[in-house]
Design a protein around this nucleic acid. Structure first.
Lengths: 149, 149
DNA sequence: CGCAACTCAGTTGTGCACAACTAGCTCTAC
DNA sequence: GTAGAGCTAGTTGTGCACAACTGAGTTGCG
């Protein structure tokens, strides 16, 4: 029987770690005028441009309630452009502007800064990443069994 | 040089894991009419009642901007009571109501459910918890060096 | 064809998280 | 004793997350 003590709970460790990392990103991303979720969207677009909102949502596990206003802010900032698809007017394609593409250069150094802050070598990162992915999948499977989508 | 690929980034794994766990808590805590941060505050109070807002903030790493409205909602829900200290009128002491104390019984089973969902044994939990704590501390130290409080 | 089921993006409302600020209290140095 | 520095909780404003819903568009089935 697990206890109700705060210190014992893995979840709190996860919550603390996630907030600590987000807080570090806040400091690092100040230069680029991006929030962390906005940075994630930019990462996804730098990797593969011209994506549908639906595709971004699938990759980042975010729904339109989060993405729509976020993308609107990125567009206002001049980093992306949104276009309704002609062949399917329900869909909206998100593309990088020149400024959005250019911003990638300013972001180049970020992963190394984050890596240094975590003081983990490459294998340490890979191992932790694998464990977190396993955890995420396990928890998601359990939750979906609890309350079927 | 670390890459800008989304898949490689530990931070995204952390972010996903944290959201998955929060989502599971949402389902599990529905019964108790608590959100996850509210549950954390209740955990802290079940462990040690009659705490100052400042003390809760220190334990959970939350400032008054988050705690004040959260505690107000817990009070509205009848789970806690807030009293300004007589000897120092700046401070507010938060105490469990009878309903708040009683709610602990409904929460007893939660850690085991979460543990099961994570499909980690006790040593696995302890190890991951230790790694996350180390990560949090490392990242926080780095961030504080970057932008001194 | 016709229309019901579904899809996609967007909107609304709630509750964190956090920065910046305010109001009131306490403490210290003078 | 009083002025100023510092502390504590609370408020305000911004931006996620997410549930619930809307509305326009598409698809499939009879």
């Amino acid at each position: 029987m697990a206890s109700l003590r705060l210190d014992d709970q893995l979840c709190f460790g996860l919550y603390s770690a996630s907030r600590a990392v987000t807080s570090l990103y806040r400091a690092v991303l100040e230069d680029l005028d991006l929030t962390y979720p906005q940075y994630l969207v930019m990462l996804a677009l730098w990797e593969k441009d011209h994506r549908l909102v639906k595709e971004l949502g699938a990759e980042l596990n975010l729904d339109s309630g989060t993405l729509s206003p976020l993308l609107k802010r990125l567009q206002t900032a001049g980093l992306v452009v949104r276009n309704r698809q002609a062949d399917d007017e329900r869909s909206v394609r998100v593309s990088l502007s020149d400024a959005g593409t250019a911003l990638r250069e300013k972001a180049r150094g970020i992963p190394d800064v984050i890596g240094a802050a975590m003081s983990l070598d490459e294998t340490g990162v890979a191992r932790m990443r694998a464990e977190l992915d396993r955890l995420t999948e396990s928890v998601n499977a359990y939750r979906e069994a609890l309350s079927p989508a």
